[in-house]
């Protein structure tokens, strides 16, 4: 697994396109939100900024990159090659995804730390960590499922749009309008509950037990995504 992960890391840094979409764009967008935090705190709250940067990095840096990587490795038969070794399927997937997951977590941590430094620390750091990890898990699951529907890295530019735009729209919708209206709908759609959890962790003022219930929809999406992935994921290109 770690052999695959280190070779993936080399490939990410050698491929400028992947480097730009997975690292530079999310970092630039996040830097903008952190810099303009007063404007966006007025619009929503500091928790909203935390949620929007989390989802920007998770959607572009993690989800879209993971789908593109898996589609590309399948298309050039690298997945088949890896499967002709002694490594198991789980180890292969873990190795392929580990670098982008680690980069995502490092990026999110760095950006949220920057936000905390310029705008004040979050109310509940532990809960924030839980929210970040649940979001990462959900996006990995969705990436595996989407990769099954994606034939090529070019095709990934289309197949990743619904989820990337969808979760960022959810983060903004929930972050700006709250969950007083349409609470169930907002919490059940992917990203809604995770946004609310992130905002509660950053802004405080909500009982932790109530907040933890918000994990259920996010973890539910992990289960749905993994179930879809086991049906949809393919190791070799369609003939």
């Amino acid at each position: 697994m770690f052999s695959i992960a280190s070779s993936e890391l080399i490939q990410i840094f050698r491929n400028r396109l992947v480097l730009i979409t997975s690292l530079i764009i999310p970092a630039a967008v996040s830097a903008f939100f952190v810099r303009q935090h007063e404007t966006y705190a007025d619009l929503g709250s500091l928790g909203y900024i935390a949620a929007i940067v989390l989802f920007t990095v998770a959607a572009f840096g993690l989800y879209a990159t993971a789908v593109t990587t898996l589609a590309s490795r399948r298309q050039n038969l690298f997945l088949k090659r890896l499967r002709s070794t002694a490594e198991g399927d789980a180890g292969i997937l873990a190795g392929l995804l580990l670098p982008v997951v680690v980069l995502t977590v490092v990026q999110v941590t760095a950006i949220l730390t920057a936000l905390a430094v310029v705008a004040g620390a979050p109310a509940n750091v532990a809960l924030l960590v839980v929210a970040v990890l649940a979001t990462v898990a959900m996006m990995i699951g969705l990436a595996l499922a989407t990769a099954g529907l994606t034939n090529s890295p070019e095709h990934a530019q289309v197949t990743t749009l619904p989820v990337t735009l969808g979760v960022i729209a959810m983060a903004s919708w929930v972050g700006i309008t709250g969950t007083e209206n349409l609470a169930w709908l907002k919490r059940l759609l992917p990203g809604g509950a995770a946004t609310e959890l992130t905002m509660n962790a950053w802004n405080g003022g909500v009982a932790v037990t109530d907040s933890l219930l918000l994990l259920a929809p996010t973890l539910g999406w992990v289960v749905v995504a993994v179930a879809l992935a086991t049906r949809l994921f393919r190791w070799e290109p369609r003939r």
Partner: peptide, 20 residues
């Protein structure tokens, strides 16, 4: 073939070799 175009020859042999 099934090799990653961005890896070098040495890296490819090393990676697949270790995984065997």
């Amino acid at each position: 073939s099934g090799f990653s175009p961005d890896l070098t020859v040495r890296e490819s042999v090393g990676l697949i070799g270790r995984l065997t």
